[in-house]
Computed example of a mutant assay.
Amino acid sequence: MDLQSSRFRNETLPADSTRLRLLPVAAVLAASLTAAAPALAQPALQDIAVAAATCFNCHGTDGRASSFIPSIAGQPEHFLLQRMQDFKAGQAPHVTVMTRLMKGYSDAELQGLAKYFSEVPR
């Protein structure tokens, strides 16, 4: 319906009545979005597995490297997370690729990757 139609222009509602009617709707919408936010922040396990597969290119299958690149499989979760956060922040000297790669991940994804690789047997 057009709010400018004569039907609505001739109504004699108080100016704040529309806002008062919409307030409960806005409150419910805001509450539902807030409740859903933590669930949306955590990436799904399948998404972490896909992201982890990109690490296999350098760190070896399942994070077990067979070269001078460090193995990340089975490392403590807090160590892996801190290292990735350092890369993302540009605080890891003498590293080139990892600093650029980690900037593409959210904090939740970094936490998921750290957990994933910490649970892989060495």
Results as ranks from 00 to 15, higher is better:
residue 2 D to C: 04
residue 4 Q to L: 06
residue 4 Q to M: 08
residue 5 S to M: 01
residue 6 S to D: 13
residue 6 S to Q: 12
residue 7 R to N: 11
residue 8 F to S: 05
residue 8 F to Y: 01
residue 9 R to N: 10
residue 11 E to W: 11
residue 11 E to L: 15
residue 12 T to K: 09
residue 13 L to N: 00
residue 14 P to N: 11
residue 14 P to A: 12
residue 15 A to I: 07
residue 18 T to I: 00
residue 19 R to M: 04
residue 19 R to T: 06
residue 20 L to N: 09
residue 21 R to T: 02
residue 21 R to V: 01
residue 21 R to S: 01
residue 22 L to E: 13
residue 22 L to D: 12
residue 23 L to Y: 03
residue 23 L to K: 01
residue 25 V to N: 07
residue 25 V to L: 13
residue 28 V to F: 05
residue 30 A to C: 10
residue 31 A to W: 09
residue 31 A to T: 08
residue 31 A to V: 11
residue 32 S to V: 03
residue 37 A to T: 12
residue 39 A to Y: 14
residue 40 L to F: 09
residue 42 Q to L: 10
residue 46 Q to I: 13
residue 46 Q to R: 13
residue 47 D to H: 04
residue 47 D to Y: 01
residue 50 V to K: 03
residue 51 A to Y: 07
residue 52 A to Y: 01
residue 52 A to T: 03
residue 56 F to H: 14
residue 57 N to G: 15
residue 57 N to Y: 15
residue 58 C to S: 07
residue 59 H to C: 02
residue 60 G to M: 00
residue 60 G to V: 00
residue 61 T to D: 14
residue 61 T to V: 14
residue 61 T to E: 11
residue 66 S to D: 11
residue 66 S to T: 08
residue 67 S to L: 04
residue 67 S to G: 10
residue 70 P to F: 08
residue 70 P to R: 06
residue 71 S to A: 06
residue 71 S to T: 08
residue 72 I to N: 05
residue 73 A to C: 03
residue 73 A to L: 03
residue 75 Q to H: 07
residue 76 P to I: 01
residue 76 P to C: 06
residue 77 E to H: 05
residue 78 H to N: 07
residue 78 H to Y: 07
residue 79 F to C: 01
residue 80 L to H: 04
residue 80 L to V: 04
residue 82 Q to G: 02
residue 83 R to D: 00
residue 86 D to M: 06
residue 88 K to Y: 02
residue 89 A to E: 08
residue 91 Q to I: 14
residue 91 Q to D: 15
residue 93 P to L: 06
residue 93 P to A: 07
residue 95 V to W: 11
residue 98 M to F: 04
residue 100 R to M: 14
residue 100 R to E: 15
residue 100 R to P: 12
residue 102 M to C: 06
residue 102 M to P: 05
residue 102 M to R: 04
residue 103 K to I: 05
residue 103 K to Q: 14
residue 106 S to M: 04
residue 107 D to F: 08
residue 107 D to M: 14
residue 108 A to G: 06
residue 109 E to Y: 11
residue 111 Q to Y: 06
residue 111 Q to F: 05
residue 112 G to D: 05
residue 115 K to L: 13
residue 115 K to D: 14
residue 115 K to Q: 15
residue 116 Y to A: 00
residue 118 S to F: 00
residue 120 V to F: 00
